[in-house]
Simulated assay, not measured.
Amino acid sequence: MTKLGPNTVEYTVKSGSGHSSGGAGGPGQGCITVLRANGSGNSCGALGDGRPSRQPNAVVIQVATGQAGTAILDIVSD
Rank of each mutant, 00 (worst) to 15 (best):
Met1Ala: 15
Met1Glu: 11
Met1His: 12
Thr2Pro: 01
Lys3Cys: 11
Lys3Gln: 09
Lys3His: 12
Leu4Trp: 08
Leu4Glu: 01
Leu4Phe: 07
Gly5Thr: 03
Gly5Pro: 09
Pro6Phe: 11
Pro6His: 15
Asn7Pro: 07
Asn7His: 13
Thr8Cys: 10
Thr8Gly: 05
Val9Trp: 07
Glu10Pro: 00
Tyr11Ser: 02
Thr12Phe: 08
Thr12Arg: 14
Val13Ala: 10
Val13Glu: 02
Lys14His: 13
Lys14Arg: 15
Lys14Cys: 11
Lys14Val: 11
Ser15Asn: 14
Gly16Leu: 06
Gly16Pro: 02
Gly16Ala: 05
Ser17Tyr: 10
Ser17Gly: 12
Gly18Lys: 15
His19Met: 13
Ser20Lys: 12
Ser20Met: 14
Ser21Tyr: 11
Gly22Phe: 03
Gly22Ser: 05
Ala24Pro: 00
Ala24Arg: 03
Gly25Tyr: 06
Gly25Asp: 03
Pro27Gly: 03
Gly28Tyr: 07
Gly28Met: 08
Gln29Met: 11
Gln29Arg: 09
Gly30Asn: 00
Gly30Val: 03
Cys31Trp: 04
Cys31Ala: 08
Ile32Ala: 03
Thr33Ile: 01
Thr33Gly: 02
Thr33Ala: 07
Thr33Asn: 02
Val34His: 10
Val34Asn: 03
Val34Ile: 08
Val34Gly: 01
Leu35Thr: 00
Leu35Ala: 03
Arg36Leu: 02
Arg36Tyr: 05
Arg36Asp: 00
Asn38Arg: 11
Gly39Asp: 01
Gly39Asn: 03
Gly39Cys: 07
Ser40Lys: 10
Ser40Ala: 14
Ser40Thr: 03
Ser40Trp: 15
Gly41Pro: 02
Gly41Tyr: 14
Gly41His: 15
Gly41Cys: 09
Gly41Val: 06
Gly41Lys: 14
Asn42Gln: 11
Asn42Gly: 09
Ser43Val: 10
Cys44Ala: 07
Gly45Cys: 05
Gly45Phe: 06
Ala46Leu: 13
Ala46Ile: 10
Leu47Val: 06
Leu47His: 06
Gly48Leu: 09
Asp49Met: 12
Asp49Arg: 14
Asp49Ser: 15
Asp49Cys: 05
Arg51Trp: 13
Pro52Met: 03
Ser53Thr: 11
Ser53Met: 10
Arg54Thr: 09
Arg54Gln: 13
Arg54Ala: 09
Arg54His: 12
Gln55Gly: 06
Gln55Lys: 14
Pro56Glu: 08
Pro56Val: 08
Pro56Met: 05
Pro56Gln: 12
Ala58Asp: 03
Ala58Cys: 05
Val59Asp: 01
Val59Glu: 04
Val59Asn: 02
Val59Gln: 05
Val59Cys: 04
Val59Phe: 07
Ile61Tyr: 05
Gln62Val: 01
Gln62Met: 03
Val63Cys: 04
Val63Met: 10
Ala64Cys: 06
Thr65Lys: 02
Thr65Met: 02
Thr65Gly: 01
Gly66Asp: 00
Gly66Thr: 00
Ala68Lys: 15
Ala68His: 13
Ala68Gly: 04
Thr70Val: 05
Thr70Gln: 09
Thr70His: 08
Thr70Asp: 06
Ala71Glu: 02
Ile72Arg: 14
Ile72Ala: 11
Ile72Thr: 07
Ile72Asn: 12
Leu73Asn: 08
Leu73Val: 08
Ile75Met: 15
Ile75Ser: 09
Ile75Gly: 07
Ile75Arg: 12
Ser77Asp: 09
Ser77Gly: 12
Ser77Arg: 14
